[in-house]
Design a protein around this nucleic acid. Structure first.
Length: 292
DNA sequence: AAGATTGTTGCTTA
DNA sequence: TTAAGCAACAATCT
């Protein structure tokens, strides 16, 4: 599942590949992944280029160079990858991991490849998504502002202090697992890292937020920073589908301590087996001995 | 062959 | 007004 570390890895990879390159054409294989009309989408991109790529939580923001359209103002391409979305870039002559290719007009190699953005010089950015939870969307500055309102703070920013986290906890009463998954509280944490963070902080996922002791909140704050930072350094986790913009897998899977390890022995106490329950509608893995 | 997989939204309820 | 809880979505794998 692409979460903050995976999206950040994709962002950094694409920065060196697509910036400032003129977009020659946009090919659409399956328009249902585009929230705009296909014409608006294509018109906003063709003849334009990307001047920067930003990230907010799990959302990628491609800033375009030129203002296009009567109203004026720059447009932004928003990309959300959902569960199985991929954004892969390759030059025409390259063979790509997973067997994707895009050689000529309307020749998508794979039915799960939905959009191809073709650059001058032969480079192609492909948006693929088997389960189609992902979306792409063109917004103007107002639209972008509205989207950004839905996100809590960026957990790896310096501004995300212990005090900030404490303030977000105020008036919340759900379990800590659901709290971490809610993008309005903190941006970018998904199911894998929520479980890993809580294991690292030695806090049980079903604990109510209003029952947490000050030192437990401190531990959670520390673990959020630690786990996400380490996962970014390892270029994310590939559990099933995730690959980066070059088609490479992430390296963090070998450092997972609870996610995907239910029934196996806890790596910390080496006694208890990792349990799996359902919380906030999601599979939730934890050690009943190490987490309190 | 039914059930599990998860990010996000939108609806209902408190 | 704000938060919690949950179903729905989509396709594939076990």
């Amino acid at each position: 599942m692409p979460e903050l570390p995976e999206i950040e890895t994709i962002r950094k990879g694409l920065l060196g590949k697509v910036l400032k390159k003129p977009i020659l054409e946009v090919q659409i294989n399956n328009g249902s992944v585009i929230k705009n009309g296909e014409r608006v989408f294509t018109k906003s991109l063709e003849g334009n280029s990307f001047s920067d790529i930003l990230r907010r939580g799990k959302m990628l923001i491609f800033e375009t160079e030129k203002a296009i359209g009567k109203k004026g103002g720059k447009k932004f391409l928003l990309a959300r990858l959902g569960m199985t979305g991929r954004l892969v870039y390759f030059d025409k002559e390259d063979e790509l991991w997973g067997g994707y290719s895009f050689k000529d007009k309307n020749s998508f190699s794979n039915k799960h490849c939905h959009i191809a953005i073709c650059f001058e010089g032969g480079g192609v950015l492909l948006f693929c998504d088997t389960r189609r939870f992902g979306h792409m969307e063109i917004v103007d500055e107002m639209g972008l502002e509205n989207k950004l309102k839905n996100f809590g703070p960026e957990p790896l920013d310096k501004d995300f202090t212990l005090k900030v986290l404490r303030d977000i906890f105020d008036s919340k009463k759900n379990d800590i697992k659901a709290f971490l998954l809610n993008q309005k509280n903190i941006a970018g944490i998904g199911n894998i890292y929520a479980d890993e963070i809580l294991f690292d902080a030695s806090v049980l996922p079903m604990r109510r937020t209003d029952s947490l002791l000050p030192q437990e909140i401190m531990a959670i704050h520390k673990s959020i920073k630690k786990i996400l930072k380490k996962a970014v350094e390892h270029r994310g986790t590939t559990f099933s589908d995730y690959v980066d913009s070059s088609g490479e897998k992430g390296d963090f899977k070998k450092l997972l301590k609870v996610y995907g390890r239910s029934g196996e022995k806890c790596l910390c106490c080496k006694l208890e087996k990792i349990q799996k329950i359902k919380l906030a509608g999601r599979g939730t893995n934890f050690c009943g001995r190490c987490q309190k």
